[in-house]
Simulated assay, not measured.
Amino acid sequence: MTESLHIVCPHCDGINRVPGDKLTENPVCGKCKASLFNAHPVELNAGNFNRHIGRSDIPVLIDFWAPWCGPCKMMAPAFVKAAALLEPRMRLAKLDTEQAQELAAQYNIRSIPTLALFKNGREIARQAGAMDVNGIVQWARAKL
């Protein structure tokens, strides 16, 4: 039997237990019945941020961005493509620093875009600046 992992639903923020060997079999949320992985970054905010980074047993890669930021807009499609390549072993998420200024200050975000990789609720790596899809994937895998 494989150890179960806690996976936070990207739709309802419910916490699910999924056997590790079943992650690639399109698991669904026990609460809302939506797919736990949809190859798209999760939109985080002040209300669900701590739940996703603190309760997820898979690493969470967060793109700290802002809607007025040109490099953020340029990197956005690459980040979506990276989600398709890194899921289900890693969750990708986006946090709008304009809407969540307290979180941006708490994590000392000084430039955007900034990628921060969290594991077991703790930040383990950070990279500022826009990257292409290959750069995002290689950087994230290298930090684990």
Rank of each mutant, 00 (worst) to 15 (best):
F49M: 06
S35V: 00
C12G: 04
G14L: 04
K31D: 13
R17T: 11
H52K: 12
G30V: 05
G20P: 10
E43N: 15
G54C: 03
R55W: 11
E25A: 06
G30F: 03
H40Y: 11
K33S: 13
D57V: 00
A34H: 13
N38R: 11
S35I: 04
A46N: 14
I53R: 03
G47C: 04
N45I: 08
R51A: 12
N38F: 02
R55S: 09
D21M: 13
L23G: 07
V8N: 01
A46R: 13
K33Y: 10
C29E: 05
R51F: 01
N45M: 09
G14F: 08
G54I: 01
N38S: 12
I58F: 00
N26P: 01
N45S: 14
G20Y: 01
N45K: 05
K31W: 14
V42G: 05
C32W: 04
D57G: 03
C29G: 11
V8L: 09
G47Y: 12
N45V: 02
P10F: 05
C12Q: 06
G54S: 03
S56N: 15
H40N: 15
N45W: 11
N45R: 05
S56Q: 11
E25W: 05
G14W: 07
P41D: 09
D13N: 15
K22L: 04
E43P: 08
D21T: 14
R51W: 08
L5D: 14
G30A: 06
H52E: 09
I15L: 13
L23C: 11
I15N: 04
L36P: 00
K33N: 13
T24R: 13
T24Y: 11
I53Y: 02
P19A: 13
D21P: 10
L5A: 13
D21S: 15
H11E: 01
C12T: 11
R17F: 04
R51E: 13
A39I: 09
V28F: 06
N48R: 07
P27R: 05
G14A: 14
L5G: 01
I53T: 06
H52T: 09
R51P: 02
H6G: 06
N26E: 14
T24V: 14
H6M: 06
H6Q: 15
E25S: 12
G30C: 00
K22Y: 08
I7S: 01
N45Q: 14
E25Q: 13
I53D: 07
S56T: 05
T24W: 11
A46Y: 10
G14V: 02
K33E: 10
I53L: 05
V8A: 06
N48C: 11
V8F: 01
P41N: 12
R55P: 03
N50E: 12
K31P: 00
N45H: 13
G14Q: 03
L5I: 14
C29I: 07
A34D: 07
S35H: 12
C32V: 06
L36I: 02
G30M: 08
